[in-house]
Write a protein that binds this DNA or RNA. Structure first.
Lengths: 338, 338
DNA sequence: CGCAAAATCCGAAACGTTTTGGAAAAGATA
DNA sequence: TATCTTTTCCAAAACGTTTCGGATTTTGCG
């Protein structure tokens, strides 16, 4: 592999001059610059980023730490869409993305920040990490610039992007209320997700503002899993037959809930209205199509990447909150009279 | 950031000894090794991979070059599943993945192999690249070990993994033939995909073995795009009303075809049987559920990664062909009598 | 032509590792 | 004790860049 030295020798100049010529400095004459460029091309030269990174002390690399890259998560295109957004923005810069996966054996022995430090990434984007993850604090407390997705931690080195979860959930529940529902349950995620708390709050606010009493035993956790949600819903609806509507903190769980309802012989939306959250691809394809709160996952990734690059260029960490949108489809209907 | 030098100073030994201690060489006494390890931990030392890569001349990094990371491709979880497979295997090794995207502006100015060479990746996996991509030959002809997905090029430095496309397509068409269909069309991808040619061949073989005449004008290209397939199918079925079944070279195109049929007032499967290829997530969720040829996309990525790492460890490039499976769902039925 | 200013070039150090070839210290053997 | 082995350590070079400070050459001008 040809190096800057080879070029220097071939051109009869010093490596300094080659370096400066290739990097567009002004203190090299056009004549020699041209000569050097030509030789570089002819020798099929590619700069060695490793060497450059070493001396410049920046790798022009950002780490992308996702937890949702598992075989079972293909139903959930959330992760992929976020990644696509990140990739899309980064593609316009001179950075590259290095992929760290958290569901690995490596995770146990190496912490996230260790991974980042070893590869000398300039910054990192975290997505899908639980708030109780011991390694989360580690990377947040390290001095690596990072932006979190859906985790509200902020400092001068860490920003985050999220959506207006409270408001989104509120809209969803208000939609149910407007349809006349009063016996509304909620399938939440788990306690280690910021969004769960937020969406629960939105649920509360909507119910309280409408003066509808909240039944605490109608609020259950499905762990953001389709199967778990199905099981929980099955229990819930067999025990409490008054429930006419349920708000789910994710579409995947809504799918599970609908399965349970089907098993119980309850029709959606005639007997029970279901609304989800996320607007994953499947939401519009299942039958009945799922009413849900759409969040722009692509944009979340895009904004995260944009913010990170901004930070790397000296700007300060921000927090970005994106709008959500209620998408009414077929899984919600007016409550039955009587 | 603490370096090996800091440790050396703190331990009162040379950097050589620190390096060798940390890397488990035998020529350092257990006593000093322990001391060095302790100091390293205490100083929160992380080795600098850049420096190591530079001197070792290997980066322990593989490039993942995908073309399907676009906003419009979320329906098609093909790319994501392959990536997941790759990631899953790599997670078990001491390599990391660096993500190159091809649909970028960078692509125009930098070739794939340039990207790879600059980052000094040890090997690269290519997925979703068209066979006529000028940069494809470039990386294949470079000396970077690489494994291709669904592109049959082989040398001592390049292997590939694919599925038994001919056989898969044949099974799909035979399924239609067994249902009594004789007027069978095909929606193919484009000429720059190896799989298109293979699947076409499977189509031919099945038809010829059954002694069913082939109508060349019933074979059209949908460019692997849902919209394009919809348009082409609309034309096809308005012009040729004899057609009772169509085999599509991808599920996404099958979805487009079904849309066109719906517009034309043709029912699936009563009037027209449709079979797809891939078994994407949506296939089982659309209505009617799509009969299709399933390929294990996760495994494709997994095998690709496995082969690449094998190659990097000195083994030779191979070709891996995975089995496909016909999944009969609701979009195919016996041909109508009369 | 002579001299200052500007333009162009370069040597050497630095970045943080690994590795080679041997030196020093410790232990074993006679 | 003297010699030979084995164990333990280290100095220095190398990987391919960038950059600092200064050196050399060219240019401009009176």
């Amino acid at each position: 592999m040809t190096t800057i030295k080879d070029i220097a020798k071939a051109a009869g100049v010093s490596v300094t001059t080659v370096s400066r010529a290739l990097n567009g400095y002004s203190d090299v004459s056009e004549k020699t610059r041209k000569k050097i460029m030509d030789i570089a091309k002819q020798l099929n030269y590619s700069p060695n980023t490793l060497a450059r990174s070493l001396v410049m002390n920046k790798s022009k690399t950002i780490g992308l730490l996702v937890s949702g890259m598992t075989r079972s998560a293909v139903k959930d295109n959330f992760t992929f869409e976020v990644m696509t957004g990140v990739n899309d923005y980064i593609a316009k810069t001179d950075y590259d993305v290095i992929l760290f996966n958290t569901n690995s054996t490596k995770q146990r022995e190496k912490t996230y920040s260790q991974l980042c430090r070893e590869r000398r990434v300039d910054g990192v984007i975290l997505q899908g990490i639980k708030t109780d993850d011991p390694y989360l604090t580690e990377v947040v407390e390290s001095d690596i610039p990072c932006v979190l997705i859906d985790i509200p931690i902020q400092s001068d080195r860490v920003g985050y992007v999220t959506t207006d979860n409270v408001h989104g959930a509120k809209k969803a529940v208000q939609h149910l209320l407007e349809l006349g529902h009063r016996h509304i349950a909620m399938m939440n995620g788990h306690d280690y997700a910021f969004v769960s708390k937020q969406r629960l709050q939105g649920f509360y606010e909507a119910m309280e503002e409408a003066n509808v009493p909240i039944q605490k035993e109608w609020i259950v956790n499905g762990d953001f899993s389709e199967e778990m949600a199905e099981a929980r819903a099955y229990e819930l609806f067999t025990k409490h037959q008054h429930i006419t509507a349920i708000f789910c903190a994710s579409d995947l769980m809504a799918l599970g809930v609908m399965k349970a309802l089907k098993q119980l012989g309850l029709r959606v939306p005639e007997d029970v209205s279901v609304v989800g959250y996320d607007d994953i691809l499947l939401a519009s394809y299942v039958s009945p199509a799922l009413t849900t709160v759409a969040q722009n996952k692509f944009q979340m990734g895009y904004e995260a990447a944009s913010m990170l690059i901004d930070m790397l260029e000296g700007n300060e960490a921000k927090v970005v909150t994106l709008r959500t949108q209620l998408v009414v489809r077929e899984s919600t209907a007016e409550v039955k009279k009587g």
